[in-house]
Simulated assay, not measured.
Amino acid sequence: MKRTFLALMGICLVSLSLHAQDTTAFKPVEYPDGFTSQLNVVYAKAKDWEGKMDLYLPPKSAGPSAVVINIHGGGWNKGSKESQTGFSTFFKMGFAVANIAYRLTGQATAPAAVEDARCALIYLIKNAKELNIDVNRIVVMGGSAGGHLALMAGLLGNDHRFDGNCPGVENIKVAAIIDKYGITDVWDWGYGTRITSRSAERWLGDKAKDRKFVASVSPITYVNKNSPPIFIVHGDADPIVPHEQSVELHKKLKELGVETEFITVEGGEHGKFTKEKNSELNKSIVAFLKKLGIAK
């Protein structure tokens, strides 16, 4: 009995050790003097799950600030907000940053992640005065699955179909979306003739073959002439998310007269761009936001 107890204790200690390593594997976000941080702020709840975000806020003396909501990728089934640390481009522009976590496939299937992205946006709108945020200068950004969620959060506008966990806010809008190689057509990614992924089917769960539902969680469905401006970047050698998905999104935006910029990274894989190219992309993002009057 004693040996069994000691063995169980050993397993628990190893598990705790591994968990500690997981949570300390990423460097903390470095932010400028005068900024303040609020970590693990609860923006939504779903049963026993708490949606948390890390906030990095500029000095209030500068007046209400623009904010970028950052959403990590990982095929909706992995990843963490702690892996996201490179916000210096936005800090230099005086932006606040809201870096969010959301429910992964193992916790809840679609549309849970979309619901969470929307709730994070709505939380910032609800608490804009307290956080000193300018609701007219909200940008949503993400890469891969995070790009998909950024598009969904912004393109839904005042369509409240996924807002059941955070009702009561109207006039929901974002000033711009930054989509980095995001999934725009979930059905195509799961079952199309190009690059496909089992991540789509797993995330869709029991709705995996419901084409109407899959369309409802696909950003391309919601593009219209009133859509917010969208900056798109995608490598043309992406082996995970088809470059053509971004091509088709950009084409539809242009046809409808929506402000958009699309940068194709020649030979670029799935977010694996050179340091020089990333620097160029950051400059292009800044120029895009300044052109829109979001960055001052």
Results as ranks from 00 to 15, higher is better:
A175D: 13
E201G: 08
D185Y: 06
L151F: 01
G157V: 02
T184Q: 10
T196V: 12
S197W: 07
V186E: 02
F162T: 02
V214E: 01
A150N: 06
C166A: 14
V217K: 03
I177C: 05
I195Q: 12
H148L: 01
R202H: 15
A215E: 12
R198F: 14
R194K: 15
N158S: 06
G182D: 10
A215M: 07
T193E: 13
G147M: 04
E201Q: 13
E170K: 14
S216R: 03
R194E: 13
G190I: 10
G168Q: 07
N171H: 01
A208Y: 15
G147N: 03
R211T: 15
I178K: 08
L204H: 04
Y181Q: 04
F162E: 00
V174F: 00
R198Q: 13
I183A: 15
Y181E: 04
K212F: 12
Y191F: 15
L149E: 08
Y191I: 06
T184Y: 09
V214F: 02
R194V: 08
W203C: 09
I172D: 01
V214N: 02
L156P: 02
D188L: 10
V169K: 04
G190W: 05
R161G: 08
V186W: 02
H160K: 10
W189Q: 14
E201R: 12
G192M: 10
